Amino acid sequence: MSAVTVVATRWTQGWELTLEGEEDAATQVRTLDKARQQIVDYLDTVVPEVDHADWAVTVIPADEADAQKVRAVREGTAAAASAQEEAARSTRNLVAALDKKQYKSADIAGLLGISRGRVSQLLSESRTA
Rank of each mutant, 00 (worst) to 15 (best):
W11P: 00
A79R: 14
L19C: 13
L98T: 04
T77D: 10
I39F: 12
T12M: 04
V29K: 06
E75R: 15
K69A: 13
L94D: 03
A53D: 13
D41R: 02
D33V: 07
D41E: 06
E16A: 03
T27H: 07
A62G: 02
D41H: 01
P61T: 02
V73R: 15
E23C: 08
V59S: 05
T27E: 12
E75N: 11
E64N: 02
A78C: 04
K69N: 09
E23Q: 14
A67L: 08
A87G: 05
Q28P: 00
T12Q: 05
E75Q: 14
V59K: 05
Y42C: 04
A72S: 07
R74D: 15
E16S: 04
E85H: 08
I39H: 14
A79D: 12
W15L: 07
A26C: 08
R30N: 13
Q84F: 01
V47C: 06
V70E: 15
A62T: 04
Q13V: 01
A53F: 06
V57W: 03
P61G: 11
T45N: 07
T31K: 15
P61M: 09
A80W: 13
R74F: 12
A81T: 09
L17T: 02
H52A: 03
P48W: 02
A25S: 11
G76L: 10
E20P: 00
A56C: 05
G14P: 07
P48Y: 05
Q84S: 13
G14M: 10
E75M: 10
L17K: 01
T31W: 14
D54T: 01
V47E: 12
L43E: 05
A25Y: 04
T77L: 09
L32P: 02
A25R: 06
A87S: 11
E85T: 07
V70L: 14
R71T: 09
A67R: 11
T31H: 15
E23H: 14
E23W: 12
A96G: 03
L94C: 05
Q13Y: 00
V59L: 10
E85M: 10
E86W: 10
D54P: 00
S82R: 15
A25V: 04
P48T: 02
V46K: 04
L32T: 02
D99S: 06
D44M: 03
E20W: 00
K34I: 08
G76H: 06
T45A: 09
G76Q: 13
W11Q: 11
A78N: 05
A88E: 12
A65P: 01
E23L: 15
D44E: 08
I39D: 15
V29R: 05
E64C: 00
E23V: 14
R36Y: 08
A62L: 06
Q68W: 05
A65L: 14
L94S: 05
L98C: 05
D54S: 03
E23R: 15
N93T: 10
T18Q: 13
T27F: 07
K69R: 15
A78K: 13
H52P: 00
D41Y: 00
E22R: 11
K34R: 14
A53R: 10
V46Q: 05
I60A: 09
D66C: 08
